[in-house]
């Protein structure tokens, strides 16, 4: 594939659900080493936008290109971390096995996983800091540990673009800081788009903030003003400045 291609290009995207327009006139470009935060109120269509990008939903109009190709052809280069895991927590599977499933599509078709898959999995567990849990059943992981499992599963797919949906929703402040430090490191080798309804986390790693409420308005991370937030959320909000937010991670507006 051509690495010069933009990881994500969205043009004039429209999507409605049950006849109600949910997304309109969405234009977005994500550069190869960009770290974009996608924020907006609940129900503004952030998760739906991810599903469209991944080709799990079809747009009503407009185009989405991943690395210059349609989503279904190129989504194998995209690592996706859903907000909530869709699997049962009592499924008999270890952390290693659950993460290794991310190797599907990169590994052989028949029989089990091979040595290369096990190495990639061990590396990813190490990178997200849960090597010690490798043989634990997923049923007794904490929220933060489960979040790291999902990130590791996305990493073994060798993504060039990482999409994270509300990664900090179920973890404490300390875990939140740890996660964003990790994402800062990963950003050195892949583009990242992260969804949040909580803009308090926005730290120095984020290059740009896209505000979604039916349509999309982008800001450089350093220029996000309270008037923009007010316009999006429809009411005044207390906004902690980014220089400030950087020093007191986790504290933000709700």
């Amino acid at each position: 594939m051509n690495t010069e291609r933009l990881p994500l290009e969205i043009d004039r995207l429209r999507f409605s659900y049950g006849g109600v327009p949910l997304l309109e006139q969405i234009d977005l470009r994500v550069e190869p080493r960009e770290f974009l935060a996608l924020i907006g109120p609940n129900g503004s269509g952030k998760s739906t936008l991810f599903k469209l990008i991944l080709g799990l939903r079809q747009p009503d109009g407009g185009t989405i290109r991943l690395f210059g190709r349609p989503p279904r052809e190129a989504r194998r280069w995209v690592g996706y971390v859903p907000q909530y895991p869709l699997f049962n927590r009592d499924f008999p599977i270890t952390v290693t096995q659950a993460v290794m499933l991310g190797r599907l599509g990169l590994t052989r078709r028949w029989f089990g996983f091979n040595r290369a898959d096990r190495l990639a999995t061990a590396r990813a567990l190490d990178e997200v800091g849960i090597s010690g849990l490798a043989n634990r059943p997923i049923g007794n992981l904490s929220g933060g540990q489960l979040q790291r499992l999902l990130v590791a599963r996305a990493l073994v797919t060798e993504p060039r673009l990482l999409l994270l949906d509300e990664p900090t929703a179920n973890i404490d402040q300390q875990g939140e800081q740890g996660l964003f430090d990790l994402l800062g490191l990963l950003n050195q080798r892949m583009a990242i788009v992260v969804i949040s309804h909580d803009i308090g986390f926005i730290s120095q790693q984020v290059n740009r903030v896209a505000c979604l409420n039916r349509t999309l308005i982008c800001h450089p991370a350093t220029e996000l003003k309270s008037s923009d937030i007010e316009q999006m959320y429809g009411r005044p909000m207390h906004l902690i400045h980014h220089e400030h937010a950087h020093h007191t991670p986790g504290e933000g507006m709700r």
């Binding site: 799990l56 989504r75 869709l86 699997f87 499933l101 991310g102 599907l104 599509g105 089990g112 996983f113």
Partner: peptide, 19 residues
């Protein structure tokens, strides 16, 4: 075994991985 495990464990993820 890999495909069946992926499908029974997390169908959406299996689909995203090209299963």
């Amino acid at each position: 075994q890999k495909q069946f495990l992926a499908v029974v464990f997390d169908e959406e993820f299996a689909r995203l991985r090209g299963i």
